[in-house]
Design a protein around this nucleic acid. Structure first.
Lengths: 207, 207
DNA sequence: GCAATGAATGAACGATCATTCATTAAGCCG
DNA sequence: CGGCTTAATGAATGATCGTTCATTCATTGC
């Protein structure tokens, strides 16, 4: 602790605001609440963020950019649609387990953003969903998946996976790895492809 | 209009509060906002509801009780697990399409409830989820479904279906019926059972 | 050591919050 | 008409909201 001396208050504010927004919602958290959690007075926050709205926008865009970058990394060297879909599920579930607060406010507080910020976030979300949509489309075209409607299934899979944040708890019955693999299997089955997991069951795709 | 004369203000308040809470969140909506939407002054609401908190609790419990009753109705004369699962999906998706606001605040505003109300709602939600869990359990026991973890899959399916509220719009590309059937197919596939929809594909369950 | 800088303070601002209440108005039953 | 009930009013309450700002303080570069 010789160079961290000077003020990581900015990140402290980020961290506490994220936690409080996630717990109580943006509108229900006051700047005083955040300041108190950080250990400063309310006025001090404005040395680091121009407004409450800016603070929220900072958290949300920061999260989405990190998320997309990490996704690209996770899929960079995976080629065929089946493997890419599995990798996507593992990444999404794992990320949501690790950063439930980031993910929760990015989903929930879009409506608390003023129009320009909201539109920016919406674009980022579309970009993320687009990756999954492309995987499903490619798999469907190659006859690997049985998908009634790619757009609907894209959103269905994302909603299903994102729900992990509702129930997953560290130290719970299911560990991180088991949870990820459960979602992988459910997802693969949901697109009509059954993994020959135990070897005893198989799905006859095509005649 | 001869007997509706006297004041259905109470229901007007319910309707507008529901809409505003759903649009902006409980904490971001003031009693003045609600009163203005109804067409009265802020004090008038207190002739019908004891507090803002009571108003929210009334909306949420009212919704959950209606939901559960309607579910029981929808499943009352359906026997085998496969048909019951299909009926559950059709019911859930249909209900969520018809009453997106009710459903959204029941999901989102649990945290805005004081502990006693919240616990009550939590019990109702567990009862609802329990119906699906029982269906999945029975189907798995009979070897009809291929489910890695019944508890996880229960929540996964509910999260997947509930997501319909995010994108479904009346008059959109997919109609109500088509949407329901898309979710039916995705759900049936997700539990490892493939409907012989066109007849050309089949899943060999068990040797 | 001294000036410059970044950060925290704490009081103050106008606005808005949920809620209360005495008062007024209006429909209902006799 | 007259008494009774129900509902709406609008002003007032104290609390809390996001934000501003003059001031203080500690650290840093020179």
């Amino acid at each position: 602790m010789l160079k961290t001396k000077r003020s990581d208050t900015r990140n402290d504010v980020r961290r506490e605001a994220l936690r409080l927004f996630s717990e109580n919602g943006y509108a229900a958290v006051s700047m005083r609440d955040i300041a108190e959690a950080v250990g400063i007075r309310q006025g001090g926050i404005y040395n680091h963020f121009a407004s409450k709205q800016d603070l929220l926008a900072d958290l949300m865009t920061g999260h989405m950019e990190t998320l997309i970058e990490a996704l690209n990394e996770a899929l960079s060297d995976v080629a065929n649609p089946v493997a890419r879909l599995q990798a996507f599920v593992r990444f999404h579930v794992g990320y949501h387990i690790d950063k439930p607060d980031d993910v929760f406010i990015a989903y929930m507080e879009l409506r608390s953003l003023e129009p320009d910020h909201r539109e920016r976030l919406h674009t980022l979300r579309d970009r993320y969903e687009g990756v999954l949509r492309d995987i499903l489309t490619e798999g469907a075209v190659h006859g690997l998946f049985r998908i009634p409607d790619v757009a609907v299934q894209t959103r269905a899979i994302i909603a299903m996976m994102t729900g992990v944040t509702v129930w997953y708890r560290e130290g719970g019955r299911l560990g991180r790895r088991d949870t990820m693999e459960s979602y992988v299997q459910m997802t693969m089955q949901s697109v009509g492809l059954i993994e020959p997991a135990g070897g005893e069951r198989q799905c006859s795709i095509k005649p």
